[in-house]
Each structure stands twice: as C-alpha cells, then as structure tokens.
Design a protein around this nucleic acid. Structure first.
Lengths: 139, 139
DNA sequence: GTGTTTGCAAAGTGTTTGCAATTTA
DNA sequence: TAAATTGCAAACACTTTGCAAACAC
C-alpha cells in the first residue's frame, strides 16, 4: 500500500478557512511550511527556527499558540515521546511511530505495519481516545 | 493469569546492595516506599510529597537523583506520557499502560492483554530498545 | 580518612500568559 | 471600528547542577 493521504484542501489558506482560523500572515506562513505535502514531526522550537530561516517574522509564542490552534482544529496531532518536549505531526491519520532516542527524531510507521490486538476495554464508563504505539530505537 | 512478579529480594536493603548503591538513609526510605509490593506509577513530586508525609527528611533534588539511579540500576522504568512530567514505574516487566488524561494517572495493562503484531525492523543497523503501547483514556 | 551522597539554591529548559500594539474582516 | 491576533517579557512547572556540609564504609 502506498502512502496516500486524503488532502481535500491543498493550500494552507483553504485549510485555515476550513478550520475557522483567520488567515493571518503568521498562520499562513507556518501553514505553508507545515502542510507542504510531506509528513513532518516538528517541535515548536524547530518550527520557529525554520520560520526564521525562511524569512518569516514570527515569535516563538505565536508558534506555540499556532501549533495548539492547529492541533485543536485537527490539522495536527501532538505526540509525547520525550519528557519536556512536544512534537507535532502533520499526519493526522491513524499510525504509529519510531522514536530514535539518539537523534530525537520521529518517523511514521505505516498504519498497517503495526497491529495492536486484544485492546482491553476502558475501565468504568470511560472511553479510549487513542492507542499509541512507540517503537523506541537506539544506537 | 494472576499478576505475580518475580521478586528475588523482598527488602529495599537487598535491592540497593544488588544494584551497587550505598544504602543511605534516603535511598532506603524511598526504596521502602517504592518497593512495598504494589506496582506504583509515581512522579518525583509525588514521591517527595509521600516521603515528607511519611516523616522522611529528603530533598526534592535527592528524590530526582534517586529515581534516576534506581532507573539506571533497572529497579524502575521511566514512562513518558505527558510532556513535562516523568513517571516512574516499579513494574519493570514487559507490559503496557492505560493513561487517564483527566486524572493524570497511569495503570498497568497486564502483559498478555495487549499484543503488538508485525513490529517492523529497526532501520539501518539500529536496535529496538522498547515497544510501548499507551492506551489513552479520557472522560 | 576518603570517597560518596545530600541539601540547598541557583540555573536551565520548554512552555504559557498578561497586556499593549497591531492586524483582520 | 470592533474583535481577533501578535510580540514581548515575565511567569511557570519541572528538572538538573554546583558546591559545601554530612555521611558511609
């Protein structure tokens, strides 16, 4: 199976409109960096650095705010693999991750490569919001 | 299957000796709190609070240091489920976790309840150090 | 005694927040 | 123009570190 992500809106502007977020200069620019078609795993600091390197004037605080707004809008998924550092994934479809402890990098494992069997019921009346599999790799 | 953990040393003192850690007052006291037979998932702050409540004089810095020394010695396992907070698990056998987002609590999923199939090979010459499954539960 | 461990306080890291200035619709 | 957004700097939460005093062997 090839990795084809259904991407109804190809442009950052349309994605922002669909999410009900005002297309400000900063959001558009960050959106163009993030939603260029590649699957990205990026931290706030990394995105800020990338933005500055791309001549986008944006503050780190705005990068944090924007990442969370995008996450709340379903455009990104937040991944926790490292205490004290949040990664944001542009691939919001169900899939799991390799985490390379040496380099601190994440990579997607295609959705059909890892299977989880016998997931237990959530206790009480609670609901399972997500099952995450992290395959930790080190040198 | 009942949960029986093989526990060759029942006392904190023996565990410290086996790990090559000097049995100082603080390590012994924290070890007694941690290795009482229950499977615990605890943060540094929580353990410090518990220690103080148990009339154990110990600083937060020492709790952090001790948790890491215990982890390095294989007496504990560190679990990352929450950006900016580390949990330590007294159950070092292979198993996975429920994470209750509402309360911030972790609980073990017995080892044979979750099965991961089709784990991909580690890229290059790298080695898989651990496969973690986190079942996130929310209200 | 000698090397290890501890506690404190300071520093560090990643993230969030308050608020005035700016921008968007 | 009214409401939303931004940038800055300060505040935050958690964790680590430097070093003198205390401790274990």
């Amino acid at each position: 199976m090839t990795m084809v992500t259904i991407r109804p809106f190809s442009q950052a502007l349309d994605r922002l409109r669909a999410a009900g977020l005002r297309p400000t200069r900063q959001r558009l620019a960050l959106g163009r960096l993030l939603f260029d078609g590649c699957d990205r795993h990026i931290t706030a600091e990394q995105l800020h650095t990338l933005a500055v390197a791309s001549n986008i004037r944006v503050s780190l605080a705005t990068v944090y705010n924007t990442l969370h707004q995008f996450t709340d809008a379903g455009l990104l998924r937040e991944i926790v693999v490292d205490a004290g550092r949040s990664y944001f994934d542009t691939n919001t479809t169900e899939h799991h991750h390799f985490f390379f402890e040496r380099t601190g990098k994440l990579s997607d494992i295609p959705g059909d490569t890892v299977g989880v069997t016998k997931i237990p019921d959530a206790p009480d009346g609670l609901r399972i919001s997500r099952v995450e599999v992290i395959v930790r790799v080190d040198g």
